[in-house]
Design a protein around this nucleic acid. Structure first.
Lengths: 242, 242
DNA sequence: ACCTGAACACCGTTCAAGT
DNA sequence: ACCTGAACACCGTTCAAGT
């Protein structure tokens, strides 16, 4: 007696690709990518397993949509006046997405990502870098350093820093044989702090920004000498770049 | 008629944990982590599937040994006189391991790594950093930046740079709508180069080293002002650190 | 003691049958 | 037209039987 009002089953919203993908993302974030099976996802949605194949040709197709759903959460920060602030805000926003959706990092390990929404981060970042005076070539390279760092940090440190992580790291370090690991065993406390410490990400980001700023100063003075003021790309809010 | 001399089956070396782990690593590197199943591995070794459980309690146990087998390939470079050279050599050696064994990156995405052989890289790196004058706290943090960068690079760019990669990246960039991605579409060539270019890794490493060197100069002068010469840790070849 | 086939509870996906 | 159960070729692992 198919009722008209009451919702039966775990989830009874009208299904479409996006709704399925969002539920899949939630499942993978919560229990890990390995827990995301077509059968479990169908159960969570209250439909038969094969119903999912009406929305996605294969599981790979579903994972693409999951990536898209994850990057939809990226919110470009408001433009900042200084290069330093703009870059910092952007990288923090990018890290926030990967932290909220660890599944994105897990999936990236299995296949390259070329989803349009993922490129929104790239667009915002290279835009900011060129606004700061980087040439297109340098902006592309600088972006990749920052991006690789954020991904690497997320991969190596998938969980938020915690006392428990610190304790575990410390325990595994002091268990090493000192003859073979003289430095590590002598500085186990400092290493454990760097593994599970709350401001390690910021430390690394500041060092990279130092390096990029030094590079910018160099190339800016070179540009000034040969062709006047640096770049002066139209503001990001403008429609056409260059 | 069980012969005494001739080898039958795909592999007929005496089996032990290490031999099994090395075959598993080879399989995962060649065909991806997903291809490494207990059944396929047993076939490759010419034994019954359940035989493997005589060497490893679970698949997770096997993967730990696979990680260990991968990091066994790390060869610490000879000590260099300058901080810059030492760090560069070390990071290149670390990247070489991850490039030869992409399975290490794939596995890391699924679970944290705490294998003794993996710590050899850490030991060599923090040793070099402290030799250069970093305090234990700064050495731990600086190491993590470099380490996260190497891992991030390996995760984002699992294949060696190639013309094909560059072409694919370029194609997906120029396909983006210019109104939404003004910067990216205007610099597609530069971005494609940074994705598949041969010296992108080096570019990023140099920027990070610039940032770390600046930091070292700062803390060294602070140390000099307050306590004389910087650190002067005993050479890494010495047994006791501090 | 060592090795391993059968079996169980899972996968992704094809195919044909239900409405 | 849409949905989905049965079935197939895979998983990791337990258990009991083979030598």
């Amino acid at each position: 007696v198919y009722g008209t009002v009451s919702a039966q089953g775990p989830t009874r919203a009208r299904l479409d690709r996006d709704a399925v993908a969002r539920t899949a993302l939630e499942l993978a974030d919560r229990e890990g990518l390995a827990a995301l099976s077509m059968r479990r996802l169908a159960d969570a949605l209250g439909v038969g397993t094969m119903t999912l194949y009406g929305y996605f040709r294969t599981k790979e197709d579903l994972l693409d949509a999951v990536i898209d759903a994850g990057y939809a959460d990226f919110e470009p920060p408001p433009p900042s006046s200084s290069f330093r602030d703009a870059a910092r805000e952007l990288i923090f926003a990018a890290r926030a997405v990967l932290q909220r959706h660890p599944a994105l990092v897990e999936i990236r390990g299995a296949q390259p990502t070329v989803r349009q929404r993922a490129y929104r981060i790239t667009e915002a970042a290279v835009g900011a870098l060129m606004d700061a005076g980087f040439t297109p070539d340098e902006a592309a390279r600088a972006f990749r350093v920052l991006f690789d760092y954020v991904f690497g940090y997320a991969l190596v440190n998938p969980h938020a820093p915690s006392d428990e992580l610190r304790r575990e790291a410390h325990a595994s370090l002091v268990a090493l044989p000192p003859e073979e690991f003289p430095a590590l065993t002598s500085m186990a406390a400092e290493m454990a702090e760097a593994v599970g410490g709350g401001d390690q990400f910021e430390y690394g980001l500041e060092r990279i920004l130092d390096g990029l700023e030094a590079r910018l100063a160099l190339s800016a003075s070179a540009t000034t000498a040969s062709a006047g003021a640096p770049a002066a790309r139209r503001r990001r809010t403008g429609r056409r770049a260059r």
